[in-house]
Structures are given as structure tokens and as C-alpha cells.
Design a binder for these strands. Structure first.
Lengths: 330, 330
DNA sequence: TTGAAAGCGCTAACAT
DNA sequence: ATGTTAGCGCTTTCAA
């Protein structure tokens, strides 16, 4: 019933060779052996259905083929899409993802990272803005493991990097609003901005240096909270630094009996799937989120394969996705 | 710089005892030892910052404190919320989640399960409808590992179980539609229904046995595709077996220049976060999704602690969340 | 071309 | 109360 684990020893016995021979042959060193031996070993392996034990292997210092992933909030469509991209690319190459949800909680993030490290992950992909450099360093102390940091501050020459063209994204949003004739615009900014968010803001402010900046949390409820002020200030159009924020604004507007885009134009950022399904469909700056995940995973896999190659940086393009939430002013 | 791994041997040396003593004392068997020895060992551990190697431990047959999780589509708000619940509860107890995304792809799911098994997970939490019983059995063959299956067919006495009260959910939806005066109703059903979906349907049909049943994919695009028929048949109110489906219907209606709830009332299922943010806010049957995840994790942890205890089954309540997508007919 | 043997870091019988 | 020793399943020198 319970198929006992078949070990390398049994394969060796069956093939009439030593375990060392089996190990070698099954690990790509077959060319150094007598073809006949190779045959026998492979046959034995197949007959017994032998699979090398992952754990034992790790113990002797091989890779675990496991990557630790840390995101702040998997529930957020942006991150779930990102994770999907990472996970798919990773699994395709035989890597497994260990996912942790930071929950914007420094302590939890640290714990998660530690637990991941304990389990011998080969590398980390971290998309959590609040993770501090010190924690990062500490975790990586024991064993030099590659890290890729996503969607936040850059790690300046200490790792590979994928980002999207945030500055341009902000610019695109501004240009479009301008083209639609808006002048009294506002931009919603988070209490403390990560580097990528700042870039977006920079890009936007290039065209609208005098835009009203309203601080809030970068979340749906944050967006909702900001509507009152938007209305008060008679803002015509608002740039939400994330779609989440925009969705919150949608709700806030409805609660105030106002409509989009008639009473307020809004433009989002990210192009999360739900953008198409809200009413009106949300005009937004699209990041290739899924692709971002894939690229990060790809970079990680490559890094693991050639640990000493020079760090690379990839920046992905963004584009404006025009839908129905910005009206043309005449 | 690179803090070398400190092993049990060094702790032993430092404390002037044998490695066995260290192992014992650090594993809860301190009561059998001379308090003085215990002191010394703990001191040595702290001074050296010793942490037992997870992998080595697993090798000698201990738990890996890692749970494999398989969902069909992490991008789907239902599953990401579920995963969040699972992950948080698990991490709290020192377990790490290994997440795989099945993508409704049997082959990928199988591969994922295999990879998880290879890495020595202590148990599986599976929320993927298409996973077959055979695959499940095969994966569990090698080592008897507990499984909890979620959001699909029940595993009938072969494992612990958490479900929500699906039948009642369907009933609730029907009752509400009836109360609002609707008679010409339809229900959207998936091409092939999992057991929980069937239950919802059953519950609904109890009150509306003659409801028009339209088959489609259980997704946003599936919902969108079904709008034409809804309109054609002059349906007044529709029960979508998932919120995703409902969102698709929203889009389809808008594309047809129709409005909700004036031209069509819709009631969803799940109570995903976005329900509040679409326009009009979606009336839906709320499942405690996050709680479902937590309970599943909790059951898993308990099972691992006491592997031979009798299987338990928990069923969580659902409730109707009334918002703005169903109009009262007069 | 192949095999013997030494670990990897830990736990658990079995001794003392 | 504490130490000795035998593995766990594998990879990897080093000898033969």
C-alpha cells in the first residue's frame, strides 16, 4: 500500500554497482562511465521509480530549488498578479515558491523572511515596501543568497532589478489629463512614498507642478477618505497613484451622490483586472504586472545559474489605457 | 562578514557537553537534565546564536513545518483571500506556506503537487476543483500526509473538512429575490459544477424550480458572455454563482447599454472585496472566505499535532449582504 | 571506469 | 544525568 521510499542504495544494488556510481550517472556525469553501466543504472532507476530525495540533497549543499517570496498583501490584485507571474515562471523551471504575506507589518515580514531562510530557499523575491535594509542584510548574512527587490526602492547595484518606467507613467497620465482640457487637478500621494511611487509623482508634476497634493493611505479606504477634500476644492481631475486608490474614490463619489466622470475625472495606475469592470471603466496607466513577475523570476533563475555574472537592470514599459473615467472638457 | 553556520557541535564544545545533550535540552527534554547543564547549554546557544538546521532536522524524520497549498487561480479575489487566511494562521504557528497556482490545468496541478511532495511538506491544503482523486492518492502514496480539500467536492471521511453552508446560501439568494418580487429569474451555472456549487444551485432551485439555467464558464468572461441570452429571455433577476460571474454580467450589461438593477437585478456569491466598489454595489451571499482559510489551516495544524484523532467537519455560516444590485419590483 | 569512505547537521536508541 | 554511536539519503573527493 504505502510505497516505501526507494533510495539510491536499492538502485545501486539492483544495477550491481556502487551508490557513488549511481549518483554520478544520475547527475549528468554519465559520460565518464561505461555506456553499459549507464544503461543498467538507468534501467534500475526506472524499474524502481527512483527519485532522488530533495532534502538529502540539500543537506550536502545543493540548491533547494525553492524561492522565497514576500509580498505585503496578496489580496491586492496587483500583488496576486505579480505572484502569479513569478510562480508560473518559477515552476516552469522546477522551482517552487514559498509565499509569505507581510501584511504591512514589519515584525511579521521579518519573521517570514527568517522562516524562509531557515528552510533553505535559494533566493528571495521581495515586493514589500517596508522591509528595511538592515533586516535584509541580516537575513542574508548566513549564506549569500540572491535577492530581487520589486516595486519599491531600488537596491542600487546590490542585486538584479526589474522596474517599470514609473516616471513616464506619471507623465503619460498628466499629458492625457492636459489633453482632455483639465487644469484644476489633484494627485493623491501616500504618506510615505516608495521610490517608484515618487517617480510617478515626479513624472506627473513635470506637467502639473501646481497640482494639489493630497496625502492618504495607498488603499481603497485611503481613496474613499479623500473624496471630501476633492469635492471641497472643486477638483476637476485626479490622478490616483494606484487603481486601488481609484476604486476607493469611486465609492466615495457614489456615497456623495456624485458621478464619474461628470463631477470628477479620475485616472488610475496599474491596470488591475477590475479596471474594466467598474463603472465607468477606469482609465489608467498600465504596468505589465504579470510580465514584471515573470521577469523577476527569470532574473532570479539566471542569477542562480551564474551567480557571478554582473547585475542587470530591466525596465519595462508602461502605457496609457484609455477607458471611460476621464471626460473631455470643453 | 559571512557569519558561518554555527552547528550543534560548537554549542556542545562551548558548553562542555556532548552534542546529544545539547540536542535533548534544546528540544524540550530539559527536565531530565541537571539545571546547571541546562543553563550552560542555553547560554552557549545564546552566545553563539545557534539555530538548529531545519533541513538536517527534516532528514532525521521530523516535520518540515511547511504546508503545500494549491489553488486554481491566485489572481481571483476569492482565492487570494483564502490564501491569506491560510497563510496567516499557518505562519502564526511557525508553519510556512508553499503556494502553487494550478491555473485550471490538470498537468500543472499534478506537477505542482509532486514538487511540493518532493520538498517534504507536512500536509496539503488543496482548493483546486480539477484535481482528481487518483492524482491525490498517488501524491500521498509515499508518505501518509494529511490533506484538506477546500471549496469543491468533499473527501468523504478521508480527511478533515471545512465548508460553508452552500445549500443555505442558494436558498437565501432565492428567498431574497422572491421577496423583492421577482419571478422571471435565471441562474448561471458552470459547465461542470463542483459539489459545493451544486449545493448552492440546489438551495436556489428549491424556491425557483423553474428558473432558467444558463451554462457558462465560472469567470468574468463567462458572465459577460451570458448577458445576451439574459436580455433576450427578458429575465428580471439573475443569480450568479460567484461574484466574478456577476462582475462579468455588469460589464456585459454596460456594453449593451443596459443598467443594473433597472434592467436586470443581479445577486452574486462570495462577497469578495470588490463587491462594494462596483456600481451599483453588488448584493451577494457572503461566505466567510478569510475565516475559511484560517479554519482550514487550524484543522491542518491540529491534525499534524494529533494525527490519529477522528476527522472533524466544520461548516461555516453564510449570510446575505444586501447592497444595490437588486431592485424591488412593484 | 568504478568503489570506499567521509561527511552534511541533526536526532534517538542504547550505553554508561 | 550524560555520552556514544548509528543512521537519515545523498554527493564528492580520493583510491583502486
Amino acid at each position: 500500500m504505502c510505497a516505501k521510499k526507494v533510495t539510491i542504495r536499492e538502485v545501486a544494488k539492483r544495477a550491481g554497482v556502487s551508490i557513488a556510481t549511481v549518483s554520478q550517472i544520475l547527475n549528468g556525469k554519465a559520460m565518464n562511465f561505461n555506456p553499459l553501466t549507464v544503461q543498467k543504472v538507468q534501467a534500475a532507476r526506472d524499474e524502481l521509480g527512483y527519485k532522488a530525495d530533495h532534502l538529502a540533497r540539500q543537506m550536502v549543499g545543493k540548491q533547494s530549488k525553492t524561492i522565497g517570496i514576500l509580498v505585503p498583501e496578496i489580496t491586492n490584485s496587483f500583488f496576486s498578479t505579480l505572484v502569479k507571474g513569478i510562480e508560473e515562471e518559477l515552476l516552469f523551471s522546477g522551482y517552487i515558491s514559498m509565499l509569505c504575506n507581510g501584511g504591512f507589518n514589519g515584525a511579521k515580514e521579518e519573521k517570514a523572511l527568517l522562516e524562509l531562510a531557515k528552510r533553505g530557499v535559494d533566493g528571495f523575491i521581495i515586493a514589500s515596501p517596508s522591509i528595511s535594509d538592515e533586516v535584509l542584510k541580516e537575513v542574508l548574512q548566513v549564506k549569500k543568497r540572491p535577492v530581487i527587490v520589486l516595486d519599491q526602492k531600488t537596491t542600487a547595484e546590490r542585486s538584479d532589478e526589474v522596474t517599470t518606467d514609473d516616471f513616464n507613467g506619471g507623465l503619460l497620465a498628466a499629458l492625457y489629463l492636459k489633453k482632455m482640457g483639465h487644469t484644476k487637478v489633484a494627485v493623491i500621494v501616500p504618506d510615505l512614498a516608495t521610490e517608484n511611487i515618487s517617480c510617478r509623482l515626479q513624472g506627473f508634476l513635470t506637467e502639473f507642478p501646481q497640482a494639489l497634493q493630497i496625502k492618504t493611505k495607498l488603499s481603497k479606504s485611503g481613496g474613499q477618505a479623500v473624496v471630501a477634500e476633492l469635492l471641497e476644492q472643486n477638483i476637476e481631475a485626479v490622478f490616483a497613484l494606484s487603481d486601488e486608490l481609484a476604486f476607493g474614490i469611486y465609492l466615495g463619489m457614489r456615497q456623495n451622490g456624485k458621478s464619474i466622470p461628470n463631477d470628477l475625472s479620475v485616472i488610475g495606475y496599474d491596470d488591475v483586472e477590475m479596471c474594466r469592470y467598474v463603472t465607468p471603466a477606469l482609465t489608467t496607466v498600465a504596468q505589465p504586472i504579470y510580465e514584471l513577475g515573470k521577469q523577476a523570476a527569470d532574473l532570479m533563475i539566471k542569477r542562480l545559474a551564474t551567480p557571478t555574472s554582473p547585475y542587470v537592470k530591466r525596465v519595462l514599459p508602461v502605457k496609457l489605457e484609455i477607458r471611460g473615467s476621464v471626460k473631455v472638457k470643453n
